[in-house]
Structures are given as C-alpha cells and as structure tokens.
Design a protein around this nucleic acid. Structure first.
Length: 522
RNA sequence: CGCGGGGUGGAGCAGUCUGGUAGCUCGUGUGGCUCAUAACCACAAGGUCGUAGGUUCAAAUCCUGCCCCCGCAACCA
C-alpha cells in the first residue's frame, strides 16, 4: 500500500519534525513489525496488544515526519493447521483463508495503521523463502533427528512429554517408538559470537533490559543449531525444500522470513529502503526465536539485524492467566463496543506496562475510564471550551504554544515505555486542572465590569489553557487518534467548535456509581 | 545448588544502581469552589518498606541466611 514513488522523495521533501529537536534526526524510513500469529484459531488479546504497540510507535514516528511501513500477517503452515482444518472439515488453504481474516479484523478493530499484510501461503512469500533457503545453504547441513515417535499422531514427542504420559501416547494408547529421521539443520552456532555481541552492545537492542540479560545468560555457551525441516511424510503442509522434494521446511525459515519477504525481498529492491527494521514487536514467549534464530538467518543472508526488539508481557485477568478452559478470555470487540476504541487503546497502553505483564479487569478498566478519561481529561476539555464560549463568545485568543518541557514524554517514547509517556501526559492534564482552580477565571470574568484589566487577563488565561490543551492533543495523537482530533477540532480554528457530545460519558456497569452514595449522604 | 522477576500504608505501583525527611494514583475522611461530565481543587488519616542477622554515625536502599509469589527451562507455534 506504500506507493513506490514515495521512497525517493525523502531527500528533497523531508518534512520538518513536528516536535523539533526532540527526536533523533536520521532521516531513514522506518519499518516496524508485529509477530505473525499462527492461524489455527481465534485471535486473542495478546495479538491485539502487538498491533496496538506497533501502531503507537508508527503514529508517533509519522507525527514526527517519518515514512513508516508497518507489517502484520499470519503464519499458515504446519501440522496443526492440517489437523485443525480436517476437524473443521476444510482443506488447509480454505481454513487459513478464513482464519487470516479474523486476525486482520482485530488489527483493524484496534485501529492499527498497518501498510503491509503478509501470509506465509502467499505465492510470492513461498518463492522468496525458497530463495532464502538457497542463500543459507553454506550454513545448512543434514543430520539425523532421533526421538520418541507416535505412529498414530505421526509426530515426535519430547522426553518430558513421554515421561509425563508414562511412555504411552494418550491419544492412541500405544507406546512411543524410538525413531530417527533426516532433518536439515541451520548452523546457528556459526553466528554465536556475532549474535551475542549484537545483543550485548545493543546493536540489536532488546527491551526491557532484564530480557536481554536473561537471554545473554542463556547463550553464554553459544547458540545451538536448529532443525529447519521435516520429511514430507511427517509434514506435508509447508514450503518444499529446494532440490529435495522429500523435505518440507519447518516453521523457522518459513515464518521468520516474512519480515523481509513482505518488503519485497529479494525481488523488489524497495526492501532496502526499510530494512533493517526499526522495531520488531513480539511477546515474551517468542523472544528466543527472534533474538537467536532470526538473527542467524539474517546473518546467513548477509543482512543487518533489527535495531530493537520490543518484548511485551502477557495480559492477565484479575491476576489469573487467560485460558480458554477457565473461560476468562477477554474480547477486545466487547470492550471497544462499550467504551470506545480510544478508551481501549488508552487502558492497554497506559495500564498494561509496555514491557511487562499487565492485568485487566472490567473494574480496573472502568475506574480508569471514568476517573482518568471522563473526569480528568474529558471534563477539562469541556470546562475550558465552556468558559471560552460563555465569557468570550467562543473566540479563542492567540493561543501561545505551551512552553511546557515535554522532554520526559519523548524520552519515555524513545525508550518504548508508552505507559510512562502517558503518565507524563496525565501529569500535564492535572497541572492544567490545578492552574484553572488557582487563577479562578470565573472570578476574573465577574470583575470585568469594574476592572478594565480583567478582560485582558481573562483572555490570557483562557489562551493559556487552549495552548496547553492543543499540546495535550498532540501528545495523545499516537495513543488516542480520535480524541486528539476532537481536541484539535474544538480549539484549533480560533473559534470554539462546540463539542457534539460529552467526551467519555460515564459508565457504571462494573463500579459503583458515586451519585447514588452522595444523594444518600446529603 | 538450573535461570530470571518480585514481596513498600485498603488496592495498584515508584523509590533500591549513586545509603541520610518513605513518594504517586485510586480508595477513605474533612473542607473549598462553581467554568465543568455529582466534576475540579486543598488538607488529613493510614506504612516497624517479606523475615532474621550483619556493615555503618545513618539502610526500603549495601552484605548474608531464610520464607512466600510469579515467569522461563530450547523445537511449543
């Protein structure tokens, strides 16, 4: 969806940063990726979080004048797909066609402004992956894989699984056999030192830092080679290994390569304008593959490593792990329908720590919605707009740009701590509420008949408020696009555009309504 | 001895690297204000900082032991 002709414009028409001097000034286009979920079933909140975090970074960079490409997609090969599609009475391709749409819908639902969509069953992807395999050949070797095999399941099981089940397959009630088969292996060990160094010196920066340390500890003795194929008889739904039709690619080379094949690698040289990726957003469960196997592939191809891996955590519900059997799955659509998209984006970007596990309950969500969005922000916008309408017939004086130092906000953004960046915005919102209470514009308005300076003073105050709100609107652009637009539309034109609706109407479905209590007390 | 994260007022967290009045948000109580969505603002109550010891003039912060919670543990995609 990126127009090709945009890529060469950057030299002549590089836009000025909206927020000058606050961001690094290298002018390269940026590329941001999300993990491609396995298209076996329905999307979950973790996928939504991937899309959201990537989108926040994308919008922030676009706001700063960058040209950003943002990829989403699905991983559509493997035995689980074959199995699930059979259960659903579909052929594998129809099955993934159907599921692919579900993931795309979630991305759309959370407002992700992606530019590219990749599917591992795309013809062009499969061809590119085979090309990649060819390039990797100096680092590929064939070896025996030996393990416990169930002829009923037609697959291998780990020692641990065999131990847990007492040596008998629970699905087929038969004993595992010791079998061996040929696998191709990627000699990731060739790149142990390079990978370790890239992680150590932040050339490929892993955020948060404790994940980086965890990983370095894990590979202090080197990176292990990894099996990257299966015999066709045990894995049919996948990309054929070039020059060896009896073998099919296992997930790694196929799926991880999506990050470059979607850019057009190797055929369309436009990929060079975007790779290496600026940020790759992943969940903590897939860090190892992205920090070890993926770099091995890239180094084998002679490509640069991604600049940053943003590792987010999991979302719990009331402290419990989300699980389908427990039935505590949360549906983004339900939240968005009731509270609105911006409220959803707000909660999951501020109250779920960007780089750690978070917790969701409807109580917490609603408390944040009513307390922070409706009371702090919505009410602030309304009270300022109202005073301008009431005291100045809606005319906004010259709003001086707020000279508030927002370097902390930008520091947090650059560090990919979106939660903390929003904390800064809210502290600004609170300051403005305090400011209004301390200067008491309504008293100033009341003095205008007797005090000739009052008129000027009042308009100064309201202009100051307007300037601050416009800045708050700017800062909210990456997080809450609609809200930011509403703020700008209201104050931007020199004359107040009255709000059509109250922002963030109070909702008390999961928290007590204070109105009931106050009435009773008085 | 597998690796890592964490235990701070009712709840959720910051502070620990670079020792020295324990801070923030919510909740609770009192008061103020009226521009505003029963909102906003001020003040107050409430913590022996998991536990036992050690170092120090001084420890949430440094050292040691112990207890508890939570992830990861390589083919699971």
């Amino acid at each position: 969806m990126i127009e090709m002709n945009e890529t060469n414009l950057k030299d002549t028409t590089m836009p000025d940063s909206i927020i000058q001097g606050e961001v690094p000034t290298d002018s390269k286009n940026l590329y941001i990726t999300t993990a491609i979920p396995y298209a076996t079933g329905a999307p979950h909140i973790g996928n939504a979080l991937d899309y959201l975090l990537a989108d926040i970074w994308t919008r922030y960079q676009k706001q700063n004048g960058r040209d950003v490409r943002f990829q989403i997609g699905t991983d559509e090969h493997g035995n689980k797909i074959t199995q699930k599609s059979a259960e659903a009475g579909l052929d594998p391709q129809s099955f993934v066609d159907k599921n692919h749409v579900l993931f795309k819908q979630v991305a759309d639902m959370v407002g992700a402004s992606y530019t590219d969509v990749v599917r591992t069953t795309d013809e062009i992807h499969k061809l590119a992956v085979q090309y990649i395999w060819q390039q990797l050949k100096p680092h590929i070797y064939k070896d025996k894989y030996e393990g416990w095999y169930c002829t009923g399941c037609e697959q291998f099981y780990t020692d641990k699984e065999v131990e847990v089940t007492g040596g008998k397959c629970p699905n087929h009630q038969q004993e595992y056999e010791r079998l061996s088969e040929d696998n191709y292996y990627l000699r990731a060990s060739d790149f142990s030192d390079q990978i370790r160094q890239a992680i150590e010196n932040d050339e490929m920066k892993i955020l948060p830092e404790f994940r980086k340390n965890e990983l370095l500890e894990m590979i202090k003795d080197g990176v292990k080679d990894v099996s990257i194929s299966r015999p066709r008889k045990s894995l049919s739904w996948g990309v054929a290994v070039p020059d060896d039709p009896d073998h099919v690619m296992y997930v790694w080379v196929d799926a991880l390569s999506n990050y470059i094949t979607v850019l057009g690698y190797p055929g369309n040289s436009d990929w060079k304008n975007y790779w290496p990726a600026d940020v790759q957003v992943i969940g903590k469960d897939i860090l190892r593959f992205h920090a070890l196997i993926w770099p091995a592939i890239l180094l084998g191809l002679g490509l640069e490593l991604p600049k940053k891996l943003l590792v987010h955590g999991f979302v719990n519900v009331g402290g419990e792990k989300i699980s389908k059997t427990v039935g505590n799955v949360i549906d983004p659509g339900e939240i968005i329908n009731k509270y609105g998209l911006d409220a959803f984006r707000y909660y999951f970007s501020r109250h779920v720590p960007t780089q750690d596990d978070g917790d969701f309950t409807y109580e917490k969500f609603e408390a944040a919605y009513n307390g922070e969005l409706a009371n702090d922000l919505g009410n602030l916008v309304l009270r300022v707009a109202n005073m301008i309408t009431k005291y100045q017939a809606g005319v906004v004086g010259d709003a001086p740009l707020s000279e508030h130092d927002m370097s902390l906000y930008h520091e947090h953004m650059e560090a990919l701590r979106f939660d903390q960046a929003l904390d800064e915005v809210w502290s600004k919102i609170q300051s403005l509420n305090r400011y209004i209470d301390s200067v008491k514009p309504w008293e100033v308005a009341g003095r205008r008949e007797s005090d000739t300076d009052a008129e000027d003073h009042l308009s100064e105050i309201l202009a100051h408020c307007t300037g601050n709100l416009l800045q708050i609107g700017d800062l909210l652009v990456p997080f809450m696009p609609t809200t930011a637009a509403t703020i700008h539309n209201t104050f931007d034109q020199g004359v107040i555009t009255p709000l059509e609706n109250v922002m963030f109407t109070k909702i008390f479905e999961h928290t007590p309504n204070p109105a009931a209590k106050t009435t009773q007390a008085k």
